[in-house]
Amino acid sequence: MADYIDNNLQSIRKSLADVVLPSVDPDDPLALEQMNLTIDYLGFLQQRMDFIADRARFDFDHYRQMAELLLDAGLAEADRATLSDELAHTEKLNVAIARPSEIRAISARLARVIDELVGRVQDAPEETRTRVERIVADASQAWIEMELSWYAPIAVDPDGPGVRPLKSFFPDQVLR
């Protein structure tokens, strides 16, 4: 039996817009605002549903690549060992078949290790600190670009500079 979530979301949006919204008290601007935003957000969710797993894998790859670059940044031995262990931990996950929530949990853990390490380099020799901070700043560019595309349907400036088609970040989406 097929899954009808997409169809049902469409129905919910229509009902909210056609039936519920006109019945909201016009003297309650807050209620009207919340209802309009809810309808909009359900539309956003419809557009993004198919890509939730791709996004989780993108974040996972982003932090893994950042961690791999940081291994060569001249870190203190203890930091390097922690990062290395954490990277090894991520390899236990089969991202191709893992659930998005599992991928997100592993990515969050790796991001935390990197983040704490970046906090500590504030007191490291300037050369190390600069290398680490540059790696993080440079590696964050692609992730920010993906984020811009992900939220474009509900952003203030959806066609602003740097907003690429979302599918361009998820090559696996191309028909195989």
Binding site: Y41, S140, G160
Partner: peptide, 22 residues
């Protein structure tokens, strides 16, 4: 809050702020 949907939707703004920060 009284406007949780609005706050949830603010999630669309940080990418542009992060780009600026970066």
């Amino acid at each position: 809050t009284h406007q949780d949907v609005l706050l949830a939707r603010l999630r669309a703004l940080p990418p542009a702020f992060l780009r600026n920060l970066s």
